[in-house]
Write a protein that binds this DNA or RNA. Structure first.
Lengths: 204, 204
DNA sequence: AATTGTGAATTGATTCACAGCT
DNA sequence: AGCTGTGAATCAATTCACAATT
């Protein structure tokens, strides 16, 4: 089960399945077939089954999957069991919106602090907003491994170098730029303008 | 050159190349090799060349690509030449941050209006914020084809049905849910929690 | 000499088809 | 009878290798 050769897209889908499972649990459903779960997640049932077998066998033939068991297993695989501290760098429009966005905490992430060159405290937020100069020490002391990057493109690479140096291993990048990182660091980029542009290609 | 069988990932990369080209133009560079441009975009040079040949031949062997010509061609392919109106639905934290985010306009998109069930005007924004009840008429009248969806998951499908009915053909979805749309409608989903979860799988 | 453009080879992901359990 | 798990087949994307061009 070498971690490295499981398709990244499968990992993405695991998160989606997990969301669907949560909803089933809320409705006290305790068993689900690959067919039904796949439909909710918008994929083919054979793909769902294939995705799951990367990690083991969790279903009962003839019956389906136990919702609680499957959900717990996926949580385990995704590392959702221990609350993961995250920092956010760049408290502009997008950064401060993300700080207020509740979705992260709900999925097991704690935004431990935010950093900016000109930190201003934000009304109604209990997340500390600190100066960039305190960032490296914070990362090291709290052993933070994940960062959300919402700085302008012009400073993205510079900030990246700093946080990687301090120990960050995974970056969710919102800056519209390609980051250069050592190969042991993972970057997921969300480029809003690129997403829109991509859509505009498909309409006529 | 059937529009349908060009890999979607190639289209994504076209946007990235375009960004890199803009930077080259700012620096008055007028020729670039596939090797150099690919490096800036974070891909292999052969992939860049393959991506471009889906649309034609734009380079000069032995020399490289003319920056202006290539940039104009990509703009043409991506439909960046005519300003594309977009609406945004759901003016919460994320929605209002995106309204303030300058990146869209810079790439040729005009957010024509925003809609919410409880519209409150936003300080320092010249984008009209209207009630949901006015949405369908607006879409039809202005012939808007693209929408950014930043409503809660619970109302995402409902709103989607409404905007698709009114004529929207492409949706950039930020709601953490799988949208069900007719096959002539394109959806790009950006699920922030899923992106983070995905990263957390790769750190150890 | 340098660099593009591209068919062929490779690698990767998805889907099929069905054997194997419950 | 129903549904999972999986090897084989297919389909898609990437990379290689090199001929073609300036």
């Amino acid at each position: 089960m070498a971690r490295i050769d499981i398709p990244r897209k499968s990992i993405y889908r695991l998160s989606i399945y997990q969301r669907c499972l949560s909803r089933l649990r809320e409705n006290d459903v305790d068993t689900v077939s690959s067919e039904a779960l796949a439909k909710a997640a918008g994929v083919k049932s054979t793909q769902l089954r294939k995705d799951l077998t990367y990690f083991g066998q969790f279903g009962t033939r003839g019956l389906g999957y136990n919702v609680d068991v499957l959900s717990a297993t996926i949580a385990e695989v995704l590392g959702q069991n221990h609350l993961q501290p995250v920092i956010l760098v760049g408290v502009g429009n997008l950064g401060s919106a993300l700080l207020r966005y509740g979705g992260f905490k709900k999925e097991g992430f704690e935004v431990a602090a935010a950093f900016d060159i000109a930190p201003r405290s934000q009304a109604g937020l209990d997340i500390p907003i600190l100066h960039l100069s305190e960032m490296a020490a914070f990362i090291k002391e709290r052993q933070v491994k994940m960062a959300i990057l919402t700085v302008p493109a012009s400073s993205a690479q510079l900030v990246t170098n700093q946080i990687v140096e301090a120990g960050i291993q995974a970056i969710l990048n919102f800056s519209p730029t390609v980051l250069d990182v050592p190969e042991n660091v993972v970057v997921n980029s969300v480029d809003l303008a690129v997403e829109l542009e991509n859509l505009s290609y498909f309409i006529r």
